[in-house]
């Protein structure tokens, strides 16, 4: 059972499944850095997954499909930012509603276009190509794990670097962090706080939408209703668990993806599917508890150290 081929396919699907989690966690990271709590990652991904499949099918152009997905993800994210920041709607409430809105809106649109509430299999939508990396693909074990993934999977890992660079190495990133750390201080040095925050929502929307596009134009070659299945939330948890540090976030996302891959691979062994399908969500809850406990212990320690220093 635990042969080399089993391990290869397990690790291959880990990387495959980490793609949407990395995109959603990187998207969430930017809004988190700007001091907002965006829980609409799930809905943003769902809408862009639908848009990607629909736009690419009607335009028969992969680039337009990607653009459609990114624009719709960006728009819905900015809408959330606008309603919560400009119109002072409760951000959690807005986020939950956007997720629900995405559920309804995607089904509404695909029914009008295809006449089916489940999937868009009937649409001739396009998918991103898979990429075989030269040289690496010929290395025995490593090649079959790392090479041969969807283009967007590699983009996901590049996005991690890009987000790290944006946040820590550019003036815009500095502004985003400044706003997130202290709005008043940022305002006093002339930063447009609301503007930066909404810009962060726009960036989040654009990055998350890549995750959505991957789901309908890579992972599967069609859109199906509620196909994100909590991946936005799991990605968001990965980001929160690492305290919004890009590379740690990526590793936690890969760990979650590993659990997901394990569950999927074990399903092929004739085990009952439901407990395995439950696993990624259960692990997320357990991880939330463990990390929160760890964080609390660390804060306690800090407090004690401070007290000691005072004495």
């Amino acid at each position: 059972m635990f042969s080399i081929s089993f391990l290869t396919s397990l690790l291959f699907s880990t990387i495959r499944l980490s793609t949407p989690l990395i995109f959603s966690s990187m998207g969430g990271l930017i809004t988190r850095k700007s001091g907002s709590n965006n829980i609409a990652l799930e809905g943003t991904m769902l809408i862009s997954a639908m848009a990607g499949a629909v736009f690419s099918a009607y335009a028969q152009n992969l680039f337009i499909g990607l653009l459609g997905a990114m624009m719709s993800g960006l728009l819905i994210s900015v809408f959330m930012g606008f309603m919560s920041l400009k119109m002072s709607a409760d951000m959690t409430l807005t986020g939950i509603s956007i997720n629900r809105l995405a559920d309804g809106l995607t089904i509404f649109i695909i029914f009008l276009l295809v006449g089916d509430k489940g999937t868009t299999i009937k649409l001739p939508s396009l998918t991103f190509p898979t990429v075989n990396i030269p040289i690496i693909q010929d290395i025995p074990f490593l090649g079959s794990v790392i090479s041969g993934h969807n283009l967007l999977t590699y983009v996901a890992f590049l996005v991690v670097v890009a987000v790290w660079f944006l946040i820590y190495k550019t003036p815009l990133g500095l502004q985003i962090r400044a706003v997130g750390e202290s709005e008043k201080a940022a305002e006093s040095v002339g930063i447009n706080v609301i503007g930066i925050k909404i810009l962060a929502f726009a960036l989040t929307g654009a990055i998350c939408s890549l995750g959505g596009a991957y789901m309908s134009m890579g992972y599967l070659s069609w859109f199906s209703a509620s196909m994100i299945a909590g991946r936005g939330f799991i990605g968001m948890s990965a980001m929160n668990l690492s305290n919004a540090r890009p590379f740690r976030t990526m590793f936690i996302a890969i760990m979650f993806a590993f659990v997901d891959a394990l569950a999927m691979t074990l399903q092929t062994l004739n085990l009952p599917a439901e407990p395995l399908q439950m696993l990624p969500y259960l692990i997320t809850i357990i991880a939330l508890i463990i990390f929160a406990k760890h964080d609390m212990a660390r804060e306690e320690k800090k407090k004690k150290e401070l007290l000691m220093a005072k004495e």
Binding site: M83, K86, M87, S88, A89, D90, L93, T94, I96, S97, I98, R100, L101, D103, G104, L105, I107, F108, F111, L112, K117
Partner: peptide, 24 residues
């Protein structure tokens, strides 16, 4: 008709967002 029932879900979500918007 030719309109799917999900438009009610859309209305519902928008209602929550609009009510939550204190500046409205």
């Amino acid at each position: 008709t030719d309109v799917p029932t999900e438009f009610v879900t859309v209305i519902q979500s928008l209602v929550v967002i609009f009510i939550a918007a204190k500046s409205l």
